[in-house]
Computed example of a mutant assay.
Amino acid sequence: MSYFVTNYHQQQKSLFHSNSDWVVAMLRLESISEHATITETTDDCVTFLTDPQAPKPNKLYKLQIYKDMLRLSSDKEGHMPLLLNQNYLRLQVQDQVLRITSIDQFGRKWEYYVDFQSASSKASSDDLR
């Protein structure tokens, strides 16, 4: 019996944690950043503006690293945590493409890319597929 109890305590974090947190966070970010344009970047923050035809037009958002959290905030409201308890977070931007790199508390490395190109350029590239 003590073996099962010890094993349970060792595996407790992984039993109740799934990678769906990452998927949900990135889907939230993707829905907000669709057809947006990056306006400013720093080592720990990316600021972007939504398209005039977006559900929330011309809204300014900040995606930023704060302590062990990746959070999204707007210019008029609070913040929405996307990822919590991360051991490592990094934001890199090149040619309107954001790369988010994260290493979670279990040592798993995640990378995600968000394309901030304009709506017309996204439509033309989708038409070619």
Rank of each mutant, 00 (worst) to 15 (best):
V23R: 02
F116D: 01
P57S: 05
L82F: 12
K56W: 12
S33D: 01
T42F: 10
K109A: 10
P81A: 13
L82N: 05
L91V: 06
S120L: 10
T41Y: 08
E40F: 10
N87F: 04
R90Y: 07
Y66C: 06
A54K: 11
S121E: 15
R71N: 07
D44Y: 10
M1S: 11
L70Y: 12
K62L: 11
C45N: 08
R90H: 14
D104N: 15
V93D: 05
M69L: 10
Q92D: 11
S73Y: 02
D68T: 15
L29D: 05
K67P: 00
P52Y: 09
I100L: 13
I32L: 00
L49A: 02
T42P: 02
Q11I: 00
E111A: 05
V5M: 08
S33H: 01
S74V: 03
Q117C: 02
Y66N: 12
T101E: 15
G107N: 10
D43C: 03
R90E: 15
P81D: 14
I100T: 08
Q94G: 04
F106E: 09
W22D: 01
I32F: 00
Q86F: 03
N85A: 06
Y66W: 14
I100F: 04
L128A: 12
A123I: 10
R90Q: 15
Q117G: 04
D126C: 06
R129K: 12
G78E: 12
D21W: 03
T42C: 00
N87Q: 15
L89K: 04
S33F: 07
D75H: 11
R129W: 10
L29M: 08
V97Y: 05
S2A: 09
I103L: 10
H9P: 01
L98C: 07
V93K: 12
W22A: 03
G107P: 09
I32M: 00
E30H: 07
M80G: 04
R99P: 01
T42N: 06
N19V: 01
S31G: 04
K62H: 15
N87W: 07
S33E: 06
Q64V: 01
D95V: 02
L63K: 00
E34T: 06
E111Y: 06
L15I: 08
D127F: 12
D51K: 00
L128R: 15
H35Q: 09
K56V: 15
I65M: 12
V97K: 14
K13W: 02
K76I: 15
H17A: 04
L84E: 15
R99Q: 14
R28Y: 11
E30C: 01
H35E: 07
V24F: 07
H79Y: 15
D43F: 04
K56R: 11
S20R: 06
A36Q: 02
T42K: 10
S73E: 14
S2E: 14
D68I: 01
Q117N: 13
S120W: 09
F48P: 00
E30Y: 04
F4N: 11
H35G: 06
F48W: 10
E111N: 13
L83Y: 03
I103M: 14
S125M: 14
H35I: 00
A123M: 14
F116G: 01
Y8R: 07
I38D: 01
N87E: 15
V114I: 13
Q117A: 03
Q86V: 06
Y66D: 11
K122A: 11
N85M: 07
V46L: 07
I65E: 08
